[in-house]
Structure formats: structure tokens, C-alpha cells
Design a protein around this nucleic acid. Sequence first.
RNA 1: GGAGAGGUGGCCGAGUGGUCUAAGGCGCUCGCCUGCUAAGCGAGAGUGUCGUUUAAUAGGCGACACCACGGGUUCGAAUCCCGUCCUCUCCGCCA
Length: 429
Amino acid sequence: MHDLNLISQSPTKYKHYLEVRNENPLIIDQIMEINRKRKELINQLNNLRNQKNTISDKIGRKQYSDDKEKQQLIQQSNTIDQEIKSLEPVLSEIEESIKHLLLIVPNVVCDDVPIGKDSTDNIIVYNEGEEPVFSFEPLPHWEIAENLSIIDFERGVKLSGSRFYIMKGKLAKLQRALINFFLDFHTQKHNYKELYLPFIVKRHCLEGAGQLPKFEDNLYKDQEDDMWLVPTAEVPITNIYRDEILPSDVLPLYYVAYTPCFRKEKIAAGRDVRGIKRGHQFDKVELYKFTLPENSDYELEKLVQDACDILRALNLPFRIVKLCSGDLGFASAKTYDIEVWAAGCKEWLEVSSCSNVMDFQARRANIRFRRTPTSKPEYIHTLNGSGLALPRVVIAILENFQQKDGNIKIPEVLIPYTGFEKIEMNWKY
RNA sequence: GGAGAGGUGGCCGAGUGGUCUAAGGCGCUCGCCUGCUAAGCGAGAGUGUCGUUUAAUAGGCGACACCACGGGUUCGAAUCCCGUCCUCUCCGCCA
């Protein structure tokens, strides 16, 4: 969400941001027009309320000579009150619509974000690690999983429909090991504090984080109780300090949390239907930072490295992609995607998306800080990134570390967590 | 789920219809004093919005709103009434 004052002050700047995101900039004009009406009306109402307050005050202080004058004052107040009552609903309607418009305007775009139309204009900024070489034709993970009987796709669908699957035996444990490894790694090596969060949240949390009102289609919910399954841990973490003013000496705050993520994936219908690349439910370890505004840019670079360190430790080849303006997420002002090479399906898989959200979520969720105990509150900056998304790391391990005999070799660092060194043929039942 | 109690400023806590800017305490900020980060004295300090002044989204001035949230009664509500949410205690149920 943006500051109305900033928009009215430099509308062309905000229109530009919308244009480079391939969105209609006219909404800015709409907002400014409604805002003009809003200010006018507030002013009018304030004056009326002032008059009314003055009269009530007079009565309270018995500043009238007789009962007749008192009745006159009451009469006057009632007349003013009628006018107030007629204007109030008009104002709330205006405020409602302005709020709605503000909620659907995407974030600004950082100056160093490349301008582009879509993902084809993204820029690969970094590459690390060797793609593995095989003496045989490496298989995609769904075939490996089938051969070793470690994923049951059919019965997953039987339980919950398409895009659900059952992980079995050592693969289930591998995923559990990865979660623990990620959490330990970030808390021990990068000083993140671990959180265990609610997986279901109220509507306002999703508004605060930017998923609502625009992306309702992608969320699972229980409408009756206003309970929403989290699409990412970013949602609950963003709202931890909602409506709070933090002292600046606690900043920056680094948090790491494991949650499952639930997404309808309607937009991606038909894409990535094979295997476990895109499910309605997947696990993720999320990195999140609350920082001073002037440090968020630097903190993003560090966040990206924190995520990359996991891939280094796992010995997986990866690259960093800087998203162009047209491919940026709604709430992000700058995003780096981290992609890992999957040797079987021969694809670069996005395992992390690290974004500087700046004050966009902070405004929505009203999260502020004070530089000193006496200074004015300012909006905090928030950043998020996966560290990492589980299924795609699992894919990379299955595909990159598959052996000629069909078994999977477990990366060295994981062995203390898995308790085994390879995945071989699993039980059927 | 049932019964009862309650939700006040950073924290504690007073306040059941009108001295308007919410008592008091703790903590906080500034100043003074005292030969040291203790005590004492004095002063100050909430958040947001609108208007005005201004180069200013700095500061000043004025107004309006905010005592969980939403509605109602009243000339006037932290205070009375209704609804919602939440917390605590007891009971029930339960991993």
C-alpha cells in the first residue's frame, strides 16, 4: 500500500511504476480524484463536529440564561447532527473505495530493476556449481520415484485430487531431514531466530502481506470462520508486529520458520502437472527480515547469499536471476530468484524468491519503528525469501544424485539428519 | 460448548454521563542540582487525519477522531444499552 500524500505529490512516478509492470496507470488518477473529494468532505465534517462540540460544551458549562435558550441550543445541535449523519455514510463510502484502490496498486519498483515485459527479460546475474555429468541418461524425478516406489502419485490424487502426492519411506525422511537441516543452518550460521507459526490466519493477515484483495483465487479458506490456510510463512511473520512501533535497537530482526504452504494454483492450471514441482500443498523454510529502510537493499543481497549457502552445502548447481519489472510480484520492489539445476527434467527450478518489499507490507500491516525514544515513528522495511522450498530441492537431489543402479546418493551434510547414505528400492505397501 | 469476571495511554492502574487536552505510579525525554550511570528538583512527552503556515512529506498553530472492535441511546459517552472478538477463572469435552 502506498502513501496517499506521496501519490498526490508525484503521480507520474507512480504511473511509471505501473507501466513498467504492465498495469494500467489510470488508477492513480482515480485515486487522486477520490482523494480530493475525501479531503473536502473531511474538512466539512470536522467543521460541523466542531460546531456541535461547542454547543454541547456550552450546555455542559451551563452557559445559557434560561431553559428556553437551552432548548434552542439542543435544537441547533440536532440540526447540525442531521447534516453530519447525512455526510458520514458518503465519507465512509469514499474511504472504502479509496482503500480498495490503494490495496490493489502494486509496490514501487527499485531503480536498479531491469525494465522488461515478462520472464524472458529477466537477467541471469550469477552462476555457480557444475552440472553433473552422467554415464547414463538421467531420469526425471517422477520416473525415479516410480522406480524406487518412494512417491505414490495415484493414491495422493485418490485422497485429495490432482497435485497431491504421498511421499514414502526414506524420501519422506529426506524431506524431514532437509527441513531440520535448513532450520539449523540458518539459525546457527546466519543468526536467524526460529519461529513455529500458525498455519491458518485471519483475513487481515493476508491483506497486510499483500495477498488480498487481489489474489483471493489462489487461497484456501474457511469462509464461515474467516480462517485462511497460509500460502507462505511470509503471511504470519509479516503480521507478528502488526500495529506495533518497535524500538530501532532491536533491528534488524531475522526470522526463519518452517510451514507448509497451501495454494490453489489456478493461475498455473495445467502447468507443471508432472511430478512434485507444483503441488497444492508444499513445505518451505522461509527467511524473513525486518530492517531499517536505509539497510534493506544491502540486507536483500545478504538474504540471497544465505539462501544460496544451502545449495552450496548440498553441492547443487544454481544460478541467481534478477527479475525484470514486468515479472515482479505484486508486493515486491526488487526480486532475485534462485534456481537450481535439475539434471533429469533438464530444467532450472525456482527454489527461492528473495524480495525487498520495502515499506509496502509495513504500511498495510502498520508496522513502524522509532529511531530514538522521542522521534516520530517510521515504516519499517520487510524482506522475505525462501530458504528453501522443499519439493524442488528434493527434485534436484533425486535427479542430480541418481546413480547408475537407480539409487540416490544423499549429500554428505544431510547424512547426520537422514541417518542413511542412499535411497534404494522402497516398500510397496 | 456452558457459567462468571474483565478488556483504559510503553507498562501498572483510577475513572459509571459534562472543569473540555483521561487521576496517580513506574518507565521514558530534556534541563537543574549533587565531585562519578544513585537519590532529589523542575519541565515535557500518545497515534492518525483535515485545515493553515512553509521550499518542505521539517517545525508551528487550529480542528477532528481514537479508552478492544462495530452499532445504538443522549445536546453530550471511557462511563449507559446491543452485537462481535479476545483474555482470565470454574465446569464440560479432548490430542
